[in-house]
């Protein structure tokens, strides 16, 4: 056989990646989802489990700056990539403008969907700084919320767009 099976095939995988700027290195089961890796190996429980089928969006995280659903992302496949979770977005004393906007507009109730909603908003505003309501509603189509009826979330995204633009201008 031309292929060295031993070399290619592993029972467990050594995953090396950066999570919220911190390097990490862990042996994981080959089928572990990125969600379980974050929650159970790294105890980053801000990323939530809602369905494990990729429909609810509560588990949304960013991989190399793009949002993905961590429940249907194989942890082993984010080798050497940069992962950002809600914990990395901002803390109480230094809220990200998107977080501040969701607080101001009560863009959540139980907040179980909030990590996903926030990260989806960050990606939307990175690409579309001044989205229309239709663009906002479409950008959130991968995220379910059962509490708000989305009205306060759409309002929060609109406010976030204003704060985000202002924030960027200050930085420049």
């Amino acid at each position: 056989m031309a292929v060295d099976m031993q070399e290619l095939v592993e029972d467990s995988v050594l995953l090396q990646c950066r999570v919220n700027e911190t390097p990490c290195e862990e042996f994981i089961h080959p089928t572990t989802s990125l969600l379980d890796f974050l929650r159970e190996n790294l105890l980053l429980t801000g990323t939530h489990m809602g369905c494990m089928t990729g429909h609810c969006g509560a588990c949304t995280v960013m991989v190399d700056g793009s949002i993905v659903k961590s429940c249907i992302t194989l942890a082993a496949s984010v080798q050497r990539k940069k992962i950002s979770t809600i914990e990395g977005l901002g803390e109480k004393e230094s809220l990200h403008p998107v977080q501040a906007a969701f607080c101001e507009e009560s863009g959540f109730q139980c907040a179980y969907c909030a990590p996903g909603m926030l990260l989806s908003t960050v990606e939307l505003l990175n690409e579309t700084p001044d989205p229309s309501d239709a663009e906002i509603r479409s950008a959130l189509s991968g995220n379910l919320c059962r509490c708000t009826g989305y009205q306060s979330i759409v309002r929060a995204v609109r406010t976030a767009a204003k704060l985000y633009t202002a924030d960027k201008e200050t930085q420049e």
């Binding site: 929650r39 159970e40 105890l43 980053l44 429980t45 801000g46 990323t47 939530h48 489990m49 979770t85 809600i86 914990e87 977005l89 901002g90 803390e91 109480k92 809220l95 977080q99 969701f102 607080c103 101001e104 009560s106 959540f108 907040a111 179980y112 909030a114 990590p115 926030l118």
Partner: peptide, 23 residues
Amino acid sequence: NSTSTLDHAAFVSGRSTYTADHI
């Protein structure tokens, strides 16, 4: 008044504890 939710910063920064978060 529309006072902000208690502990709102924890809710938007992944720091509130839901039942499954106890490990």
